[in-house]
């Protein structure tokens, strides 16, 4: 979220019949890039939702006789039952990748929901009240933005047990400042408008104005931007898994499978490579959708690009 974004965000939207968020959505969905992303994402999501149970293969089931099978049609040591091969103790790679995808996506979505909630609430307070509240909240965001969140995450997860709620909490609480900043600048812009002043004159409480009037107007575009952050958080989740601070084995996650496969890289390249391909495909599909939304928002708001 650069300074450019903030400027584009605060620029006066061109008002017309349907709401701004509807117009952003429609413009984004009409682009080829969004549709490609959507198709890839739906296919991957369906596979992740159905295949692990449908195939009846347990992602943690070991089978020493079927160890280190290669992916289909590559080399001469493969089996039709394990399309992407097996790892060093005979666990099915395809099922492990798909189960990893589930964890990765769910953690990503939950994390983004948390950071949206915290960031929007604090940004709203800072933008609406201004003054001391604003200064305090903004200095905290400054400080937090200058520490790489990954250091924070490692520091906390390194000592507390990395359970799923802990991971969501740490990732979510270390990346809300960006949202607080965007919300603040948008809300500051709204604060001076007639409808807000009218509500104040009619005696509406501050809480009611913030939650009932401003929030419905400014939050939907912020949610569109947050799609990109789902992908970013999924990467962070995999990084944590990779350095051993993510969801712990035997639960398969992209990070811990890749960390595992790295030890066998020279003999079995597919163990470390396949989860990365899945992760990368998923992230690309989400990023294509998110970037299309972002671009549509820029166009509607009359900002740059």
């Amino acid at each position: 979220m650069s300074a450019v974004d903030v400027v584009a965000f605060t620029a006066t939207p061109k008002r017309s019949g349907s709401s701004i968020s509807q117009r952003i959505w429609r413009l984004a969905v009409s682009s080829t890039e969004f549709r490609i992303g959507l198709v890839v994402f739906v296919l991957l999501a369906l596979a992740a939702a159905i295949y692990p149970e449908a195939s009846g293969i347990d992602p943690t089931h070991m089978n020493v006789r079927a160890r280190l099978l290669e992916p289909l049609f590559i080399g001469d040591h493969w089996s039709i039952a394990h399309p992407l091969g097996t790892d060093q103790i005979g666990r099915d790679m395809l099922v492990r990748c798909l189960v990893g995808l589930r964890y990765s996506f769910l953690i990503g979505v939950a994390t983004v929901a948390l950071m949206l909630a915290v960031g929007c609430a604090l940004g709203m307070l800072a933008g609406y009240y201004g003054g001391m509240v604003d200064t305090l909240i903004m200095r905290i965001t400054d400080a937090q933005l200058s520490i790489p969140m990954i250091i924070l995450a490692i520091a906390v997860l390194g000592v507390s047990r990395p359970t799923i709620p802990a991971i969501i909490l740490v990732l979510g609480l270390s990346s809300w400042p960006v949202y607080a900043r965007v919300m603040r600048s948008v809300v500051m812009n709204e604060r001076g408008r007639e409808y807000v002043r009218a509500a104040q004159i009619m005696g509406a409480s501050n809480l009611r104005i913030m939650v009932g009037l401003i929030a419905p107007l400014v939050i939907p575009p912020v949610i569109f931007v947050s799609v990109l952050d789902i992908a970013r958080m999924m990467i962070f989740e995999s990084v944590l898994g990779f350095i051993g601070l993510g969801v712990q084995p035997p639960t398969p996650t992209f990070g811990n499978i890749i960390a595992d496969g790295r030890k066998y890289l020279l003999d079995a390249w597919w163990i470390a490579t396949m989860p990365g391909v899945f992760l990368c495909l998923t992230l690309t599909s989400i990023n294509l959708m998110g970037a299309s939304l972002e671009r549509a928002r820029h166009r509607i708001f009359g900002g740059l690009a």
Binding site: V239, I258, A272, L279, L283
Partner: peptide
């Protein structure tokens, strides 16, 4: 933006 740095490094 979708290439995780650690995976890209390994590959």
């Amino acid at each position: 933006i979708s290439l995780p740095n650690f995976w890209l490094g390994i590959v």
